[in-house]
């Protein structure tokens, strides 16, 4: 299967959406070649606004455009979207419940060589805490396209977290993914791995290794972190009695936290969280970084073993 970065899939899907829907306006902050909005800009220059290197104003303008009836897709790197423009997203976009989709690329440590200043490990937490904000982290190219189209039809603010790194396909092009509904990719009995983004594929690889050892685990792609698919999560807690969360994000405030919030209230079972352990990233090759920060496939396998010991 071909590798594709979720940002690549975003650029393609956005162009297709733009062809179908005249109300779509796309904004970028001088990163259109990297966020892949450049193709939309080339085809629909009259509906593309380059905000320049001014993310705060980009979010404010997005609010004004949405208030005037546009469906807005605003893109930049995750660290500048969720971080630098946080309060504009909160007060101008989310407080007014406006139809702005913040599509942030270069999330997580797999940004790679650019280093810690550009590796957002906090954005899920920042966006998740804003009232009314939907938070979506697709696993691969095909699911990005599918979820983006559904986001267009779902009114209100949303944060779509995308990556720089080309990743293996988890889904077929004609997948039937549903926004707000987690996906049981593998069904096993002893524990459930709940993953999002690029960690979904690695969770599947871990599942294969565990299967060979005779360990039976479920794998869930929790692509929508808010609103979280509570029903599926509680079902998996009941069925398997232990959960491991895996994300390319701080273990504070992201998928792991969201899962713990629900599981602890409705069906307490042991939960272990894998992610970046309250620290910044650094320069390196993406694969090296994932190994360095303990997000390798073997790390997931080992963590599942640990989880089964405490279950």
């Amino acid at each position: 299967m071909k590798k594709q970065a979720t940002r690549e899939a975003y650029g393609k899907a956005l162009l297709e959406l733009g062809k179908q829907h005249q109300d779509i306006v796309v904004l970028d902050a001088d990163l259109s070649k990297s966020t892949k909005t450049a193709e939309f800009a080339r085809v629909f220059p009259e509906r593309f606004i380059n905000a320049g290197i001014a993310e705060q104003n980009m979010m404010g303008m997005s609010a004004g455009l949405a208030a005037a009836g546009k469906t807005v897709f605003a893109s930049t790197f995750a660290v500048f979207a969720a971080g630098r423009a946080f309060e504009q997203i909160r007060n101008s976009i989310a407080y007014a419940a406006l139809d702005v989709k913040i599509c942030a690329t270069h999330a997580g440590i797999t940004v790679g060589e650019d280093g810690g200043s550009h590796q957002s490990v906090e954005d899920i937490a920042l966006m998740r805490i804003i009232p009314g904000m939907r938070v979506v982290v697709p696993a691969d190219g095909p699911s990005t396209g599918q979820l983006l189209e559904q986001l267009y039809h779902r009114k209100g603010p949303a944060y779509l977290r995308l990556g720089r790194l080309a990743v293996d396909q988890v889904y077929a092009e004609d997948n039937k993914l549903e926004l707000d509904r987690g996906v049981e990719l593998k069904i096993g009995t002893e524990a459930t791995i709940v993953a999002c983004g690029i960690m979904v594929d690695r969770a599947i690889q871990a599942w294969e290794l565990l299967s060979r050892e005779g360990i039976s685990v479920s794998v869930v792609d929790m692509h929508t972190i808010k609103p979280l698919d509570q029903e599926l999560l509680i079902k998996k807690a009941k069925e398997t009695g232990a959960i491991l969360t895996v994300e390319e994000h701080s273990i504070i405030g992201g998928l792991g936290s969201a899962v713990c919030e629900i599981v602890s209230e409705y069906y307490p079972v042991p939960v272990l969280r894998m992610g970046i352990k309250d620290q910044f990233g650094q320069s390196g090759r993406p694969e090296e970084l994932l190994q360095h920060y303990g997000l390798g496939v073997e790390d997931i396998v080992q963590k599942v073993r640990n989880l089964l010991e405490i279950k």
Partner: peptide
């Protein structure tokens, strides 16, 4: 500071 950006967005629309 945010209202002026908002107005710029409305004018762009």
């Amino acid at each position: 500071g945010q209202g002026i950006s908002w107005a710029v967005g409305m004018a762009l629309a």
